[in-house]
Simulated assay, not measured.
Amino acid sequence: MAIDPSPIGFEGFEKRLEITFSHTLTIFKDPTKVQGLRNLTRPQLDSILEPACCTIVAQVSNTEFDSYVLSESSLFVYPLKIILKTCGTTKLLLSIPKILQLATESLSLTVSNVKYSRGSFIFPSYQPAPHRSFTEEVAALNQFFGELNAEAYFIGDPNDRNRDWHIYSATEEISSKNQTDEITVEMCMTGLDKKKAAVFFKKSEEHTDACEMTKMSGISDIIPSHVICDFEFDPCGYSMNGIEDSGYSTVHVTPEDGFSYASYEAMGFDPSSVRFEPLVKRVLKVFGPSEFSVAVTCRGGSKWWALESGDVEGYYCEKVVKQELVSGGCLVYKTYAALDTPTKVTMQCRKEVAEVESEVVVCRCIS
């Protein structure tokens, strides 16, 4: 990825914000508004990204949505949904006012669901406001979405702060009825295999472009049907967005030794043809991390997908935490370590809200 201003290294762990909107019936009377958020112009998208401190570097679209590779991760724009994912020391939550202004004032849309998620930062002390702590992030989110049904959860091991997961969920109406089946997979990988990570460095003697990195690494084989838009950074780092129908996948790599990191995310795929264990194995084949986590958010009747299997060859599953979300969905969070680095962990889930911090909430742990 882009060079980080900190003297230590680049922060690979991303912040991810997903806002889903609903529309009024009048939108159907105006053909120019049927595309909803996709009607936003490039200058308007730039105005969303500017407060977060990132820019668009590449784009690919289809009939369903628009996909943008950013200087720090990715942006996906659907007619009624926007997903912004940023890494480094970006200020993602500062983009919310502009998103809401454009969606509500220009397009007559209203917020129906919100999800914010992230792992544990490698360099937390270098994060700027409002990302200096999860409590601060929740307070910032509640300024805009606190009137909805909102909850925030911290999931992690008190003895290992590197394996935490944070999720904020807000919804206009609490109901699981008529929910469309949808799965979002977020993988965070650290301690990448050095030979595999070397693919994502530009070679001084011969230039290696993003297309070569995609093929050499095996990223193109993870979900082969996806149309890929990729980008390489100087002197190292890599990002890609893959799209197919209404589904996408995205990869971001920080390959430097000492703080190497890679993320993989996929959403909108067919769970009957893309299964948990084979998908994870294909991703691991590309990066060979020493540790990784998988956060699966399931909506509708797709919870079985994440719980079907926890076995991954070469790794052992330390723990699994299942947490029902206020939106009617379910989060399944799994942590893994390579077989040659065994550890014992005890997972716990703590509910964090603006009014009550550190309140213990019951999470069903599946061994």
Results as ranks from 00 to 15, higher is better:
Val274Ser: 04
Asp270Gln: 07
Phe287Pro: 04
Gly268Gln: 00
Ala262Trp: 05
Ser246Met: 11
Lys285Gln: 11
Phe269Glu: 03
Ser260Ala: 13
Asp257Thr: 15
Ala266Cys: 08
Phe276Cys: 13
Gly258Arg: 10
Val280Pro: 05
Ser273Asp: 11
Val274Asp: 05
Ser273Leu: 15
Thr254Gly: 07
Val286Asp: 06
His252Arg: 11
Phe269Met: 11
Leu279Thr: 03
Leu284Lys: 01
Thr254Ala: 14
Val286Pro: 00
Val280Asn: 01
Val280Asp: 02
Glu256Ser: 14
Phe292Pro: 03
Phe292Leu: 02
Leu279Tyr: 03
Pro255Ala: 05
Gly268Val: 04
Met267Tyr: 04
His252Ser: 12
Val294His: 03
Tyr248Asp: 02
Phe276Gln: 10
Met267Gln: 14
Gly288Lys: 05
Pro271Ala: 05
Ser290Leu: 14
Asp270Thr: 04
Ala266Ser: 10
Gly247Ser: 10
Phe276Lys: 12
Ser260Glu: 07
Pro278Cys: 06
Glu291Gly: 10
Asp270Trp: 03
Val253Thr: 07
Leu279Val: 03
Val283Cys: 02
Phe276Ile: 09
Ser249Lys: 08
Arg282Leu: 04
Ser272Lys: 15
Phe287Thr: 04
Ser273Ala: 14
Phe269Gln: 02
Ser246Gln: 12
Val251Gly: 00
Val280Ser: 00
Pro255Gln: 12
Ser249His: 01
Ser263His: 09
Tyr264Met: 05
Arg282Tyr: 08
Phe259Ala: 11
Val286Ile: 11
Glu277Cys: 05
Tyr264Asp: 08
